[in-house]
Design a protein around this nucleic acid. Sequence first.
DNA 1: CGAAATCAAAGGTTTCTCCTGTGGAAGCCG
DNA 2: CGGCTTCCACAGGAGAAACCTTTGATTTCG
Lengths: 308, 308
Amino acid sequence: MISLHQLRCFLATLEHGSFTAAAGVLGYAQPSISEQVRLLEQGLDTTLFRRVGRGLVPTEAARALAPHAAAALAAVAEAGRAVASVRELLTGTVRFGMFRTARFYLTADLVADVLHQHPGVRLELVGQNSAEVLEHLRKGRLEAAVIALPVEDENMVVTPVLRDELVYVSADPSRLHARVTPAALAAAQLVLPDASWRETDTTRRQLAQAVQRTGHSLRPRIEVEDTETALDIAARGLADTVTWRGVLHALGDRLPAGLAWAPLRPAMYETFAVVHRQGELSPASRVVVDLVMARMRGLDRAMRAEPA
Amino acid sequence: MISLHQLRCFLATLEHGSFTAAAGVLGYAQPSISEQVRLLEQGLDTTLFRRVGRGLVPTEAARALAPHAAAALAAVAEAGRAVASVRELLTGTVRFGMFRTARFYLTADLVADVLHQHPGVRLELVGQNSAEVLEHLRKGRLEAAVIALPVEDENMVVTPVLRDELVYVSADPSRLHARVTPAALAAAQLVLPDASWRETDTTRRQLAQAVQRTGHSLRPRIEVEDTETALDIAARGLADTVTWRGVLHALGDRLPAGLAWAPLRPAMYETFAVVHRQGELSPASRVVVDLVMARMRGLDRAMRAEPA
DNA sequence: CGAAATCAAAGGTTTCTCCTGTGGAAGCCG
DNA sequence: CGGCTTCCACAGGAGAAACCTTTGATTTCG
């Protein structure tokens, strides 16, 4: 079978006109080059050089072979460069998983960071919900992600980076005067996000459990997918909603007008963590993981410092 | 160092999603594929597949590598086809040497034969003079040729194919009545071809020797390169010339008007032979050699049958 | 929980690669 | 023309690579 090494020896021989010269250039002994070219001739079932006197004369077949041999070697070299380019994070795609609401916490800033540090890379930030993302992680389709705890998988490395507090949001200030207890939640007319993931979503389950302990059940009047949609509906006074302080913090001025919020009593927290499989993390993911950690921890500090 | 085999294994693995499947397709055991991919990863200093559970997940680097790996394999396959195409005489260039005057004997017919049998090939018919062509043969720049004897080189295979007779050509019938002896040649006003090769040309040397034996020397009044030019000059009555009967035979109607010819006395002959180095002849040259032999021998028979 | 499938690792055999050393042929030059 | 150099071919042997079989560990699926 024909090999790259044979092609290299052949091209060097063709270029320099003799086995001896080719051997000198390639750093081998002359019989090695001679043998490789002979093997190539055998593999191609063709004479590539006429051995005439003490010299070599390339045949027509050699002239036909040369450009293709060069092309093959060039393709391999290019392959090496392409891989190196990915390895050095000059090109390629980085995929990172996140629960959908994470975009309030870091998407735009994270993208800015990555694009700035690595101008050539593509970035894919995928994921709807923490449970779905965790499944992708387990199947290997994602290397790393930021999701809400808990993560019960001993093969995963879990690094908590931000603790956020659930808050009750309403357009009606009167509903925020009293302590928002689980019983109050059960009685309220609510709009909740993550309609498609209500069975597995950790926040939903936390809320549901708290309400259930009062003997009631959590029956939101309205279900939507987006947190933003839920807030819009709340701003219209159609229902109240529950979200994370961090979302309000991140929205700032862009929070729909007329909304106010109050903490739950007892307080309920959600912890977000960067999660990845045990073992080596690719350089690309490492970069994104580090950036996410820095951003999220910065947010964590900012929110802890902020008055409630 | 990265090898084609590794690329093959890698692509099969990528395509079929597992080492086991790739091994099945390629006809190897699973650990062999596994090892080759590991070597490739080592050679590229990159992880190509994440080993997750019992499956493999290609990395970004693998996706970057794949097209270049395919390109390298394609180039090698193309190289094989290109060489085969030359070997099968579908494409490529066939070089064949001949003394210049051979074009009177066979060039157009030979080209027709080759192009008809091998529509894709290029044909190079090179050579000025038998001595020059022989030198090319010795240096390996030509594989085979048809030239005038003698060829004193034991490394060459010499196959005589045509014996031709030297004839005296003149526009003046009176000069053809007497026997054209060497002495007559010495006295004649001659135009001779092969000006550049007068030192080595075999016909010249034959003529010169014959004349010299009479105590004179051969001093042509005019020297030109082309036989056709010499004949044109002879037709204008400016000088007489000497050429081969085969040339007149081949020219037929196209012989310049007014020329007549007579044999030399004693007769002088020139023998043409197909000559090539000992050992294997490439299929391409073999084809041309065979065609030339057939054509030349046909001419030989035709001329021997023709009355002088 | 058992069965099937998959990758990884170990051990051993065969093949390939490459070297050194040698011989022979061809060209070069005094 | 004879010696010198240069080049290719060949042989033998050491080391590396390729490949196989067997085994083990893990995961998935019924």
